[in-house]
Simulated assay, not measured.
Amino acid sequence: MGSYDSKARRARLRLAAVGVSAVAALALVGTLAITTLSGGEDEPGKVEAKSPPDSSASGSPAPTASAKEFTPATAARIPLLKATSNTDGIGTGFEHSALGATSAAVSYWEDLDFLDDVIAEKQWSAIAASDSPETVDQGVSEVRKVREGVGLPPSGGTPDGITFSTNVKAALTRSLEPSGDVVNVWMVFDRFATIKDKGTDGDPLRDETTNLILKWQNGDWKVTTEAKYTAKVRGPRAYDPDSKFAWMDGWREVSDG
């Protein structure tokens, strides 16, 4: 995970706190883009393509003389693929392609539980690379930090009466290996809390940025946090749906089809 982690963690804590506090208050009265894969050694805000763009893989228009006029909001969205299987409560089974990698990252991030450490451990175990066991440990550790940060016991489930939903809006995918079998996927997402009998949180998280590194292993895309890959990750240009520079950097809006 990249340099946005501290900000994202604070944001997760804030949202969790809003949801948990709301549930506690209720109790008191009787009642939580794909783009063509390019080299991973890119500088922040810059794409150094190692191979010609493959517009068929990304679902985006091929670059032309007028490409600079596109923005993430005006260009074609990436039609994400659906998971073909389910393992321990998380969608799995994505094709071996750039689109498959992006679809997997978005699906994983939207499905991962970030407040129930027991569920999270099963989910991370299902999607972590076999040679990256620390990925599971880090994922579970993050959940427990969130729990402690909002005054919950280190281990346990989500408080009754609150649910969360995560919606990834845009993605930027770059290869970290010439083979294209290890990719880094940046994502911009919103997260909402819904409280029983109270509706949706009026102050949701918006435009948060995170990333997952995936490698093709045993017929599916698996998450890895191996140092040899995390060292290659560089922060992207900030996402802006109306910026032609964000589009040129590789940001694409995504669609569930």
Rank of each mutant, 00 (worst) to 15 (best):
Q123N: 06
I127Y: 08
I127M: 04
A128F: 04
A128T: 06
A129L: 10
S130G: 08
S132D: 11
P133H: 12
T135C: 05
D137I: 07
G139D: 00
V140A: 00
S141A: 12
V143L: 02
R144F: 04
R144A: 02
K145T: 06
V146F: 06
V146D: 01
R147E: 00
V150I: 07
V150N: 05
G151T: 03
G151E: 02
S155H: 04
G156V: 03
T158N: 03
D160L: 15
I162C: 08
T163D: 07
V168K: 05
K169A: 05
T173E: 01
R174G: 00
R174W: 14
L176M: 11
D181A: 04
V182K: 07
V183T: 07
W186V: 03
V188G: 10
F189C: 09
I195H: 03
K198F: 15
T200N: 14
T200K: 15
D201N: 15
D201Q: 14
R206Y: 08
E208N: 14
T210L: 04
N211W: 13
L214S: 02
Q217S: 05
N218M: 02
G219E: 00
G219L: 01
D220Q: 01
W221C: 04
V223Y: 05
K228Y: 13
T230W: 12
K232F: 12
V233F: 11
V233G: 00
R234K: 15
R234F: 14
R237D: 02
A238G: 05
Y239E: 10
Y239T: 06
D240T: 04
P241R: 12
D242S: 12
S243G: 03
K244C: 04
F245Y: 15
G250P: 04
R252F: 14
E253Q: 15
V254T: 06
